[in-house]
Design a binder for these strands. Sequence first.
RNA 1: GGCGAGGUAGCUCAGCUGGUCUAGAGCGCUGGAUUCAUAACCCGGAGGUCGAGGGUUCGAGUCCCUCCCUCGCCA
Length: 531
Amino acid sequence: MPTFYLTTPIYYVNDRPHIGHCYTTLLADVVARFRRLDGDDVLMLTGTDEHAEKVIDRAKEAGVSVQEWADRNAQAFRDAFAFMELSQDDFVRTSEDRHKSRASMYIQKLVDSGDIYLGDYVGWYDPGQEEYVTESVAKAHDYKSPVSGKPLEKRTEQNYFFRLSAFEDRLNKHIETHPRFVQPEARKNEVLGRLRQGLQDVPVSRAVKDDGSEEWGIRMPNDPGHRVYVWIEALCNYLTVVDTPERRQYWPASLHLLAKDILWFHAVVWPAMLMALDEPLPGCVYAHAYFVAEGRKMSKSMGNFIEIDQLRAYGERYSVDAVRWYLATQGPLGATDADFAHANFVDIYNAELANGLGNCASRVVNMIHKYFDGNVPDARDATVHGGVDWPHLTAGHVQASRNLFDQVDLHGAAHQGLAIVTAVDGYINNTEPFRLAKKITGPDDPQCADLALILYNCAEALRIASVLLLPFMPQKAAAVLDMLGAKTPGNGELEAHANWRGEFGLKTGEPVVKGAGLFMRADTEEAAPTA
RNA sequence: GGCGAGGUAGCUCAGCUGGUCUAGAGCGCUGGAUUCAUAACCCGGAGGUCGAGGGUUCGAGUCCCUCCCUCGCCA
């Protein structure tokens, strides 16, 4: 069984879960669900990054221990992901020993190999903030603190550095010989452009004073006066989690999903570290863009972050699967930002879910009830009818789904399932089963067989469409399968279940259930739901 | 300032190496048909001087130049 290991970034534990965290993790979830269905041995990883110094500060403000604070906030991410029906196989926290011990080991290895060395760091220090600011920021503020306005101090301190510069050629070569390594294309160009300007070694630690405060973070091996920078330690999570005898087979990761702001770390620093550790590199680093809210950039100062509670409100009104569908199909998977706009949400919801899938399921099930007492009609042996070659048509969309998932094109893949639904709608209009039903004089009327064939084809096509839609809307697609009396496929069963009238095809005589409306039409005038 | 991406219907976008593009899709809008269905589905229509100007060519949304605008990355 091929393995497929995919990751999201680990999220800063002080943050409140918002649409951005949910989006990246949802992408991973949809891909993971599809891969499992298609037979891969999948490991999907997400988690929290907990060792920043601000975590200590905030815990103090809240009057709780750092661990308690981190526990509480990590749980908020778990809850958010549970609400979104996200199916991570593991949730790593950098404060866990399994992470800390191995991350220390990697650092030690890099020290031993000389890829991490002790050097002098010269920079502009802001005493008020107790942090360094970059040269460009310092210059922009006339060498005064951007916060307090007091003069910055030029300081030199000893730091450990990672010899990033040594990997420039290998990185360039790798990116050029592996066209899918950095995606999408525009992001790859950015990385290559920046590589052309040359690489500098990067500091990976900072001196800490032992003031008796709580033990937090990872110290430099053999030099506990230095704490490993949180970002470099955080990157290690992708490896620490699978660096066990049981999980080694998953490495290297097939796909790292992340947002564009941390592309550099993932496409350059992390691969260079892996080279230094003599580890194989991940297959693809995919950096998506951002969601904006109602056309405006989300920011702390604007206070317009779409937080998990607002997504919950959407979920309550329109269903969680509708939220998943909107994010997955309308999200900023490419290089440009996407808008989470209420009017747009309602448009997509009505057009694709209510008028599309929901209405189609409703009309098919209803006719089977009306004309065949709610039992799957007998299709005899015909498969091509009304100008549609159903086995061929559905198989084409199944294959297209696979190809699109390979390219992480979720929008395209989602529409493969929907395309079958559209085909069913067109087929019904062309063959007019409802009109046929009126012409039928009795059970011996040969037109009865035509009617049966038409409705069987509709139901079977809808079944396969649902299988393809399962990764996007696990609840609703399963609900359609339930209505049709079909089984929901398990891991590795895509092929068998997507097979027209195969082992899992609809069986003549089996009951079809009229369920509640799947996605009821939304009122376009209604205001957006609020948390 | 350096590098990069892009400006195509009301909206979101396809249009690869120039010629079925007399310019497309989906949504929205509009007319019709229909009634199995969630005022839905199906068919048709309107709507664009393809950012502006110049050039190459028998022929340019597609190549070249200049300019304008937007966005991203870096400094």
